[in-house]
């Protein structure tokens, strides 16, 4: 216990230790110390630190600590890579009525097939995705998670691009491995093309299905999309700064109340 007590006493400010360390150590040698004393000494040391530091130093120390903890936390999270591709669909003839609405319906119809359980299950098994999760969760849940969190299909509305006969949409896939994120994306673009042909053969949406092309092939992500260490560090810095200011004001208030003479 003496070891812990002595260790706790090192948290006092250097100026305080220069003045009181010798007599304080003499006291610690005489007292039967326990864990309460260790906490008492730590509390005393912290109070002295806050008394000797100015507001800026305390806030800065908390902010730097917050940023370091947040950055370390960010590094501990598995990285996620995002691959993106862009496809464009064009009508064969002139669009009639609400062309964009027809496109959206057509894409939604293809999306339903491409993101169906059977289709995604085949993709998962084919590429050997989510191996560890597959041991713990049913395939249904994995497919659902993949659909909700790892795949995103969005129409692209370009500024000034108000043509009624074309519509571009992006496909994003996210995975902890950059090459597999790209492979997932490639598979999905192929499935869209296949599905477009199937729809055309069925005799539905012939006008829509004549021209579906890949504008940008699936990208190979170089840097992780999540977690963004800089963003985490900034948030940690901000949270640390707030905590530092709060603690500093609270400690100063406490010290002022305790120190105020009673007259």
């Amino acid at each position: 216990m003496k070891h812990w007590v002595r260790l706790a006493s090192y948290f006092y400010p250097a100026s305080w230790r220069r003045r009181y360390a010798m007599e304080f150590n003499a006291l610690l040698e005489e007292v039967d110390t326990n864990w309460k004393d260790v906490l008492d000494i730590l509390n005393g040391a912290l109070t002295m630190q806050f008394t000797s530091w100015n507001l800026k130093s305390i806030a800065l120390a908390f902010a730097v600590t917050g940023a370091a903890i947040a950055a370390a936390f960010a590094f501990s999270i598995p990285s996620q890579y995002r691959s993106t591709s862009v496809m464009q669909i064009t009508t064969a003839g002139s669009a009639q009525g609400d062309g964009r609405s027809d496109f959206t319906k057509h894409i939604n119809k293809m999306e339903q097939e491409v993101l169906s359980r059977t289709s995604l299950e085949r993709l998962i098994i084919g590429l050997g995705l989510y191996k560890s999760q597959r041991r713990e969760k049913p395939m249904e849940d994995i497919v659902q998670d993949m659909r909700n969190h790892e795949i995103s299909i969005k129409p692209i509305h370009e500024a000034g691009g108000n043509r009624q006969d074309t519509l571009a949409f992006s496909i994003s896939t996210t995975y902890p491995d950059p090459k597999l994120a790209q492979a997932m994306n490639r598979e999905l673009t192929s499935k869209f093309i296949e599905q477009n042909v199937v729809e055309a053969r069925r005799g539905r949406d012939l006008r829509m299905g004549e021209n579906l092309e890949v504008l940008d092939p699936a990208s190979l992500p170089g840097r992780p999309f999540y977690p963004h260490v800089g963003w985490f560090a900034f948030m940690g810095l901000f949270a640390g700064l707030l905590a530092g200011l709060t603690v500093s004001y609270a400690m100063r208030w406490r010290i002022t109340i305790v120190r105020r003479p009673a007259h």
Partner: peptide, 25 residues
Amino acid sequence: KHGYAMMEDIQRFAGVRLGPGTLYG
């Protein structure tokens, strides 16, 4: 009195044991 003597004395007359950190604060 020195620190330890104060701790003992205070415990005797007030029934309060001041920890080393509180005493030196």
